[in-house]
Design a protein around this nucleic acid. Sequence first.
DNA 1: TCATAACTATCGGTATAACCGATTGATCAT
DNA 2: ATGATCAATCGGTTATACCGATAGTTATGA
Lengths: 291, 291
Amino acid sequence: MELRQLKYFIRSAEVLNFTEAANDLFISQSTLSQQIKQLEEELGILLFDRVGKRIRITEAGNLFLTYARQALQDTKNGKQIIEDLKELKTGTLNIGVTYGLSALLTDTIVSFSKLYPQIKITVDFGTSEDLLEELKIAKIDFVLSFLQLPADDIFVSQVLFDSKLALVVHPSHSVAKEKTIDVKDLQSISLALPAKGFNTRDFLEDAFKKNNISPSVKVELNDINMLLQLVETGNWCTVLTMASVKGRPDLQTIPITGIDITRQASITWHKDVYRKKAALVFTEMIQSQKH
Amino acid sequence: MELRQLKYFIRSAEVLNFTEAANDLFISQSTLSQQIKQLEEELGILLFDRVGKRIRITEAGNLFLTYARQALQDTKNGKQIIEDLKELKTGTLNIGVTYGLSALLTDTIVSFSKLYPQIKITVDFGTSEDLLEELKIAKIDFVLSFLQLPADDIFVSQVLFDSKLALVVHPSHSVAKEKTIDVKDLQSISLALPAKGFNTRDFLEDAFKKNNISPSVKVELNDINMLLQLVETGNWCTVLTMASVKGRPDLQTIPITGIDITRQASITWHKDVYRKKAALVFTEMIQSQKH
DNA sequence: TCATAACTATCGGTATAACCGATTGATCAT
DNA sequence: ATGATCAATCGGTTATACCGATAGTTATGA
């Protein structure tokens, strides 16, 4: 039994005329006759009575017709949901994002949701390591993070935009009046930084080392929001990319001079995993936003 | 898209391993790979991610899986109902019967219904002409009637049993004490007979004519039950086949001598219409009953 | 690190069966 | 009667489902 035969059968049952049904189905009458016969043989029962030059559906045919129609409808529904998925009328988008880039997500999520309200979005915060592991098992569709050498060639990355590291201070802080700050001067400021292991912290640590600078780190935190809350008290400063402080107008960013500490925000995909349309559209929206 | 491909897809989704699925499906791995690919091309979307030597179902695949399963289930249901029909677990039996033979139906309906309680039975009473018309358009499965020349060769008939015509009287009637009655003596008895046009009446009329007998018909009725009710009053007698009075122990049948008035109960089928199993079993039960 | 096993994709060839046109045989309308 | 209509059948062609072999990849283990 094949869907083809069910289609033939249904049309034949509708018009009760093999010749006409065959025309409708764009096949020859002989083919239709054969296929119906084949279906009848498989079911072990006649679906039509051949009375004279007419056909009439049998009780069995009528009973079977319901199920044939249903089966065909199911395949149509299945096709439709795939179309919906392609047109972003359904589905789920699973985003992985590191803490440092979480701030830039908000705007895109808002506009994406407005355009495609039927798409469900889940956001997974985590360290790069955690997220790449999730990406590996396709738990998330892509990872937004700062660029790092791909440890595994099952991943491919592309750069979204550059974002410089800057000193983040509260306006009440004494250095808040400065237009810029030299990297050497960072040593004299009490800093609150992301905990070691955080991507940005490791990058910073590396940059300090290369410039023989030993900053005075007073607080380490594994949560960027808490970190920014501490900065808001005015007791500490921190160093983050500009992108990380997006949407926090109460805080001030002061460019750091004497060192090039530009990070590249990037998106990472699994090499082999199908890139669902929702993911492609979403990342295009991120890239088209100004940073 | 064909059911074959859906089966392949479903099994593949279940074991997430083409090689194993191919074994389960008794096809080669290459064939499975090709068929899945074909399905994916038709849907315009990947159903599986091929990551390394593994496959993983995509979001689209998961969505589609539900519908594929449903479609397949529908065909199974369709097959099952056909099987049930063959096994007499469902379906409808439409019986056409002339008034004269309606009495003999009761016992068979009772025992058939006991054996196959899920089969719905409808009984259509009517004249032979009406019933044969219904048989022609397959509104009924067969006709139980007294044998007559098949006016149309789209019908085929077979004899069920012989049934003699007899005088039907109520015990209170004056002739009730007689063991037999000669056909000539019928002329002296007030008769209530089926209306002209009724098969039995026409047969009787013909027999009377051939024997130069003119009975005194006092009442004509187009309903056998009403006729028998009249006979029960003791005021009239009637002439019917023995079969017609089956199940009426309150009435007495007196054989008519001096004339051979044997009728043949028969079953008539449409030549070309599929004989459903319920109908075949039912008629076999009728034939196996004693008359 | 290298070999091996496990797994999927692809290629070329074969066999099956879907398909067609022509024909037959039947029925229906005129 | 006669032609029109319709389904079944036959023989031949084409499409394709299928297979085995193989390539290419990844995971496993010595």
